[in-house]
Simulated scan of single mutants.
Amino acid sequence: MNNILIIEDEAKVSEVIKAYLEREGYKVYCAIKGYDGLNLFNKMDFQLIILDLMLPDIDGEEVCKFIRKTSDVHIFMLTAKVELSDKIQGLNIGADEYLTKPLSPRELTARVNALFRRVDSNKTTMLSYDNGKLKIDKEKRSVLLKGEDIILTPNEFDILYTLALNEGKVLSREQLIQNVYGIDFEGYDRTVDVHIKNLRKKIEDNSKTPQYIITVVKVGYKFGGKRDI
């Protein structure tokens, strides 16, 4: 079971998030002050910390810095600050995700689930789908379709791997760009569409009715393969 620590001074917010996460099977602990959160962190083993930046006793940024001195635990920052400079600062001091309020508990729960899917996937180098029809080897950066090697460009592989890790979750072009190219990408966001088109030609039986890379109109793309157990 994955342990999650919520450090949030609004008790009602913590209670709602806690309820949603516990429905997914996580063990959730809450602290309303930064120092209380640090004390809990030092006493227990957590796999994720959801950290509000506006705390009554110490800034969330300082809490993050303290944690990063000794741990690489995943940290989601929650804040009302929406400027790009604030996001960059948060990522630079050690946040894994920087989420702006108001954020729906359903979206946050989906992001937490996606995180732990990625963590679980990283325990193995091979992702396999549909009884071995499609295999993606992270370490070798190779793809097998029906046992045959499929040659992908680096960006095509990264897009496919990112979608596969977030199986079932819809990713916008902006999210794919951030994951594949980084936040400093200054190109044309339709670049993703070009790579998606080329990927479909290579891995889909019929690119017009794709099985793996599915378009969600006006939102983005999601991966439709069924993970092999």
Rank of each mutant, 00 (worst) to 15 (best):
G182V: 04
F46S: 02
D86T: 12
L48G: 02
L171R: 02
F223P: 00
G132H: 08
D137E: 10
V219M: 10
K222A: 04
L5K: 00
K197A: 14
S121A: 11
N92G: 10
L53M: 09
V217H: 07
K87G: 04
D9V: 04
D189F: 14
R190A: 12
H195R: 09
C64T: 02
N113Q: 15
P105N: 03
E24C: 02
I203Q: 04
L127T: 03
F185H: 06
K33D: 12
L145V: 14
S104K: 09
V119K: 12
K208A: 11
Q211S: 11
L134H: 03
I58Y: 08
I214Y: 03
C64S: 03
F223V: 06
G147A: 12
I4C: 05
D57I: 12
Y188V: 06
Y29N: 13
N39E: 15
L108D: 00
Q89N: 15
G60L: 05
T124Y: 15
L115K: 01
Q47N: 14
D59Q: 13
L5W: 00
G90K: 05
E62Q: 12
R173H: 09
N206G: 07
T125Q: 11
F116A: 02
K146V: 11
A114T: 05
G132W: 09
D9R: 02
N113F: 08
Y212K: 06
D36F: 06
T109Q: 04
N39R: 15
N2Y: 14
E204T: 09
N206V: 01
G187F: 04
V13H: 12
L78Q: 02
L108H: 00
L165P: 03
S121F: 14
Y221N: 01
P102H: 10
N198F: 11
V217C: 03
D193G: 07
I213M: 01
I32Y: 09
L171M: 10
Q175A: 05
M126A: 15
L144G: 08
M44D: 12
I214P: 01
D193W: 09
K65C: 09
G37L: 02
Y221W: 10
N42Y: 13
L163W: 03
L103I: 01
I32C: 14
I151H: 13
E139K: 13
A80C: 07
I75R: 00
K12E: 15
I213C: 11
Y26W: 05
S104N: 10
R200H: 08
R68H: 04
L40R: 07
S142F: 08
K138I: 13
I17F: 07
V194S: 12
R173Y: 02
I88G: 05
K133C: 09
